[in-house]
Computed example of a mutant assay.
Amino acid sequence: MSFQVDGEVASCGGRLLKLNHESKETKTQMSVNIYLPQQYYTKQTSKIPVIYYLSGLTCSPQNASEKAFWQPQADKYGFAVVFPDTSPRGDEVPDDPENGWDFGLSAGFYVDATQDPYKKNYRMFSYVHDELPRALHQHFQKQGSSSQLDFLDNIAITGHSMGGFGAISAFLQLRSANKYKSCSAFAPMVSPSGVQWGEKAFGGYLGNDITTWKKYDPAALIQTVKNTNNDYILIHQGTSDPFYKKQLKPELLQQAAKGTTWEGKIDVQLVDGFDHSYYFISTFVPKHAEFHAKNLGLI
């Protein structure tokens, strides 16, 4: 599968590539950004690991690329960063009938929809965790540099808000396959089945049978998925975040982990005065970068 290059921007010591490609899963053109660190251009012999960053509601690949400041950390440790889009897009893609911002376009919730009219295009779980990594691997293989970038094996995942939910959900769902070496999140929604954002999205994409929601709900998954590798999940949450108490509730993941192999392994760090914005995210990206670099074997 080939990518079209929409732009190439010099950033820090490397370059940010702005790409798009035709997705078989979403049946649309999908945009994705990838930051290639300075180590990519020095042609080092060891493979460069990859961190996948999932953005939140209303975002595109541009938001985190421009405002999260992952690039200096990528250069420091030697990993690449992939910024997927948050939903399929296009005139034919169904949107929120209520014209809201928390469902539909820019709000795919990283699930595979099973309900009409969304199931044709909203295949974000399969797209992000299967099709996109394989497509990137094939693309760079054709460029002659697949041996430099490890899109498939030595990888980690993180995200913000809706993307934080998506990161933790996928990390737990794919734990038996050891898909991701580590997982972190910024202000994630950890129990979507019990909050307004999640109820609306899960109901619209997955239907009204609440038992089917548990496949994606981190608070439910953590009670059934075994932590066989002594993994930790790192979470930062701002105490001045207006969504903290009503929609996000990261402490619920710690509560759900009690009595399981994950008890004591959910590190929720509350940080006073920080909100839900990229001022918050960019402040704590260095801590998350170090956390993942250790798990990816870079430290």
Rank of each mutant, 00 (worst) to 15 (best):
Y40W: 09
F280P: 08
Y127P: 00
S169H: 07
S282I: 06
I281L: 15
S147C: 02
K67H: 14
F79Q: 03
C59I: 00
F202W: 10
G297L: 12
D95V: 02
A113G: 04
T58H: 03
D267R: 14
A107W: 04
F3W: 11
C59A: 11
I48Y: 01
Y110K: 00
S240L: 12
Y216R: 03
V225M: 04
N208M: 06
F69S: 10
H21Y: 15
H236N: 10
A64Y: 06
L19G: 06
D209A: 11
L206C: 05
A68I: 06
T58E: 11
N178P: 00
K249E: 12
C183W: 12
G198M: 07
A201I: 10
Q39G: 13
T212L: 12
F284T: 09
V128R: 00
F274L: 13
Y110A: 01
K181P: 00
K181G: 00
A187G: 14
Y232A: 01
W213Q: 03
S65M: 10
Q173H: 05
L206K: 01
L298V: 09
S193H: 03
S31N: 07
T158S: 15
A10Y: 05
A107R: 05
H236P: 03
Q62F: 05
Q255K: 14
N121V: 12
Q247K: 04
L174Q: 09
G203S: 15
G166N: 02
W101R: 15
G13N: 04
L36V: 12
S182Y: 05
Y205C: 11
H139K: 07
S176R: 14
E290G: 05
F109G: 05
D75C: 00
V9H: 11
S146G: 14
A107H: 06
N99M: 13
P61Y: 05
